[in-house]
């Protein structure tokens, strides 16, 4: 048995890194044994979701969820698959995998990824520019759209330049980071944003810069368990988008 056959379980659960997944899909194309096992796992687990005991959804969930959904632009064809960040790109791929493996279609062509990523970053930058322009107003003024408000904004120092703002939008706080003059990355490397409290780093979004060295990321702080005040923000260069703690050098940072 090929060594890669042992990755089937992690592939089925979408847990391989992008590179591993690419390699595994290559292997899957030529390994009948894995194809059979993959089909078998898919078939045998088909009924399992129905084993979930019914639970009553919380009150008001439908309104909250649909409001969140319709707040998202249903983008046109050109932007359709644009991932908002590196992590999103991974998710998109997993969903493609969820639609089941077929020999003729897999692996999906990834050519769209680069221009789409650039488009996503451009949109993201445009959004940040808007935020930054709004900052010039007196701090208590609510923006003309009546919802966003900058709670805090800092300039990060180090190699390159970056601004980080915490923006309040309705009841949720979003971290917006906009960076320039960043060094290019290689392979699966990403720039990872960290929020630090009492020496402990929390992941707060990752991004890759475009060819001009401009990068940006927005991150909903509601995703973080720690909702208190943060001590520090830092950006480090990481080998890929999965680091649980900073492994690479911190290139930019600031006190909060």
């Amino acid at each position: 048995m090929h060594e890669q056959c042992d990755q089937l379980i992690d592939y089925f659960n979408g847990l391989l890194s992008e590179e591993e997944e690419r390699e595994f899909e290559k292997h899957l194309k030529s390994c009948e044994n894995c194809q059979e096992e993959w089909a078998e796992l898919t078939e045998l687990t088909e009924d399992l979701p129905y084993a979930a005991e019914p639970v009553e959804p919380p009150e008001g969930m439908k309104d909250r969820v649909l409001a969140g959904v319709f707040a998202e632009e249903q983008s046109d064809q050109a932007e359709k698959e644009a991932p908002a960040s590196f992590e999103k790109a991974k998710e998109t791929k997993r969903e493609a995998q969820a639609s089941s493996y077929t020999q003729s279609e897999s692996p999906k062509p990834k050519r769209w990824l680069a221009p789409a990523l650039a488009a996503a970053l451009f949109l993201s930058l445009a959004g940040n520019l808007y935020t930054i322009l709004q900052e010039e107003e007196p701090p208590d003024t609510i923006t003309t759209d009546g919802i966003d408000q900058v709670l805090q904004s800092v300039q990060l120092e180090g190699t390159g330049s970056a601004t980080a703002s915490i923006v309040e939008q309705k009841d949720t706080n979003t971290l917006v980071v906009n960076a320039n003059q960043l060094a290019n990355l290689e392979g699966e490397q990403v720039y990872q944003v960290w929020l630090i409290k009492e020496g402990k780093p929390y992941r707060a979004g990752s991004f890759v810069p475009n060819q001009n060295g401009d990068g940006a990321v927005t991150y909903s702080l509601d995703k973080l368990q720690n909702q208190g005040k943060w001590d520090q923000i830092a950006i480090s260069k990481e080998p890929d988008a999965t680091s649980k703690e900073p492994q690479g050098e911190v290139i930019l940072s600031s006190k909060l």
Binding site: P58, R64, V65, G68, V69, E73, K80, E91, E95
Partner: peptide
């Protein structure tokens, strides 16, 4: 609930597409 939100955003924005 966060999962529900994500799933329906994926459906709506076509980050995940059904065949």
């Amino acid at each position: 609930e966060e999962v529900m939100q994500e799933v329906f955003i994926k459906v709506w924005t076509q980050k995940a597409t059904y065949d």
